[in-house]
Design a protein around this nucleic acid. Structure first.
Length: 553
RNA sequence: GCCCCUGUAGCUCAGAGGAUAGAGCGUCGGCCUCCGAAGCCGGAAGCCCAGGUUCGAGUCCUGGCAGGGGCACCA
């Protein structure tokens, strides 16, 4: 449990106690909220509960606050509770307990900040879900990083998380892919054929055709376009997986649309919708009465040609998600899917499920900036920067960081020049440098011939520097940050947290020296312990972001 | 026309209904004889407009204004 929740419980208990002694009138307890005061001088935590209770209790907020404080049983981690106008209760952490966080961080290691919110719950996060027709667009990569980061937070909260990628491996797009590859293949063999505007123009198609030529020479000339489509699809899908792996995104499940047909789930979903009376025929097409769920017009499920629209498998897929028993499903959609997301939920509802287990997370576009200019991209026209190129150019860490460095509701400007910058201007370096600086201390310490584990059992009560304590206060906030990410489905909070943690660290590093000659020995060892914990914490936080924690840069 | 997102410092953005609205970049000014200055410290500078809800609104509601995205029997 986060410390905030522990404090909530303590305050709630005090209110009940106060009601028991008659210091407060009896009323139903509303939620107690705990926050960090703006001004640190007020304390470490605060609650505005007394002000919220004023109406219920018909008392002055200050009096309520005082009554609560009078009945407060301070746990060992709190040293002081005070009342401040207009009715805040401010709470202060015990310094000795704070110092012990160093030991806790080292004890818990890569589990630091864990909490059991999701224990026993199955969660699914769906993201990227790009079709295997070309390199993944940078916007989808954003969704992927958001999804993976959210998955890491949810795992820290004990959820059993399935990271899932849904893709269309049948239908029109694959047909066009096959034709494009076939035409390139024929061209390589000197035939006079040309791509139409509809075909994929990218160089990667020619690469695949070249591969086929090398493997099979001209033996494929009589193969149908579908052969080329299947081959290209496999190649592209594999390279998508490889590319995503390079930025530490590994999906647990690749769910393909074709399986919805093969398993009969799509047909079943459609039949169920029909049975429930949400489907009608018009102009030879089957329409979904989405207006009954608030849509502004009904939508086609099955075209006049007999082919389902993309909407039908989407609904069937979510039908299956519901059947698979996930307690929480998170769908991450880019700007091109904002409008269709609600329709899927309407489908789920029409199928008889409460759609509230599905949370849709929307995000805005990504602009790629190079030399101060926006790089224009178009998949079909073959103009794009691929994920591989991006990784080659700036590395995985900046991609991971910048993709979650903004709220999903804001666009991301991915500045490749900034990503490469090796200075405090680049938040990626700024954060990782904190880890590097810690590593440097231990490297120097070992090089000087000292016992590398000399800090074991150090006296942590010597860590009295205000900046050290500030860093530990920040460390303590990790659980609350993770919880906020899960509650709001907004993974960007971890990026801001990491930066703030680094910003709390660097002043310590400047002020609280370890290896300098004038530092007394017990203090040196305590500080060494502190930096060991700091290093561990940065490794933990970087891992939560899917980033590396380098020893040197 | 309808739907979604966004208007916070010169720029890019945080801000879970609470106290004096926070960062980064830029700008101005300080700090290296010992662990990475790849860093630290300090200054100036801001909530689109109008109503409403609330003890309390950057935050919630309504209406404007402005910008972005989307409204296919494409995915």
């Amino acid at each position: 449990m986060s410390i905030e929740h522990e404090i909530e419980a303590v305050v709630a208990k005090a209110i009940v106690e106060a009601q028991g002694t008659g210091a407060l009138p009896v009323f139903d307890l509303p939620d107690v909220t705990i926050e960090r005061p703006r001004d640190m001088s007020f304390g470490d935590y605060a609650t505005p509960t007394a002000m919220k209770l004023a109406r219920l209790a018909r008392m002055a907020p200050l009096k309520i606050a005082q009554a609560i404080v009078d009945h407060l049983e301070l746990p060992d981690f709190l040293i002081e509770a005070t009342v401040a106008p207009p009715g805040f209760i401010n709470l202060r952490l015990a310094e000795a307990w704070l110092q012990q966080q160093v030991a806790v961080i080292l004890d818990e290691g890569m589990d630091y900040g864990r909490f059991p919110r999701g224990a026993g719950q199955k969660a699914q996060i769906e993201c990227v879900s790009a079709n295997p027709t070309g390199p993944i667009h940078i916007c989808r990569i954003r969704g992927g990083v958001m999804g993976d980061t959210l998955a890491r937070a949810m795992k820290a909260a004990g959820y059993d998380v399935t990271l899932e990628y849904y893709y269309n491996d049948a239908g029109r797009q694959i047909t066009i892919l096959g034709e494009s590859t076939q035409i390139r293949y024929q061209q390589l063999l000197g035939q006079d054929v040309a791509l139409s505007d509809e075909h994929y123009q990218g160089e990667y198609i020619t690469d695949i055709a070249r591969e086929l030529l090398a493997k099979y020479s001209d033996a494929l000339l009589d193969k149908p376009a579908s052969f080329f489509g299947d081959y290209a699809k496999e190649q592209i899908s594999q390279s998508q997986k490889d590319s995503l792996g390079r930025i530490n995104i590994v999906f647990d499940v690749y769910y393909n649309e074709r399986s919805l047909y093969e398993s009969g789930r799509l047909q079943e979903a459609l039949a169920t919708l029909e049975k429930r009376g949400y489907v009608y025929e018009k102009e030879n097409a089957k329409w979904f009465k989405s207006t009954e769920f608030g849509d502004d017009k009904d939508r086609v499920l099955v075209k006049a040609t007999g082919e389902p629209t993309y909407r039908m498998p989407d609904i069937a897929y979510h039908y299956h998600k519901a059947q698979r028993g996930f307690d929480i499903v998170v769908d991450i959609f880019g700007p091109d899917h904002h409008a269709t997301a609600p329709q899927v939920l309407m489908g789920v509802e029409a199928l008889g499920y409460d759609p509230s287990f599905v949370r849709t997370v929307l995000h805005q576009i990504v602009y790629l900036i190079r030399d101060g200019q926006q790089v224009k991209m178009s998949t079909r026209a073959g103009q794009f920067v691929t994920l591989d190129e991006l990784v080659d150019e700036v590395g995985a860490d900046p991609i991971r960081y910048f993709m979650i460095s903004r709220s999903g509701n804001s666009p991301v400007e991915f500045d490749m020049d900034l990503a490469l910058e090796k200075s405090d201007k680049n938040p990626v370096y700024y954060i990782q440098n904190a880890h590097v600086r810690c590593a440097g201390i231990f490297r120097k310490w070992a090089e000087a011939g000292f016992d590398p584990n000399a800090d074991e059992g150090a006296d942590l009560s010597l860590l009295t520097h205000e900046m050290e304590l500030n860093f530990l206060r920040k460390a303590l906030a990790l659980t609350a940050v993770l919880e906020k990410i899960i509650v709001t489905s907004e993974p960007h909070h971890i990026a801001f947290y990491a930066y703030e943690l680094a910003a709390a660290f660097h002043p310590v590093y400047e002020a609280s020296r370890v290896l300098h000659s004038e530092v007394p020995e017990p203090l040196r060892l305590a500080r060494l312990r502190f930096y060991r914990a700091a290093k561990q914490l940065f490794a933990r936080v970087l891992d939560l972001m899917g980033m590396s924690a380098p020893e040197v840069m």
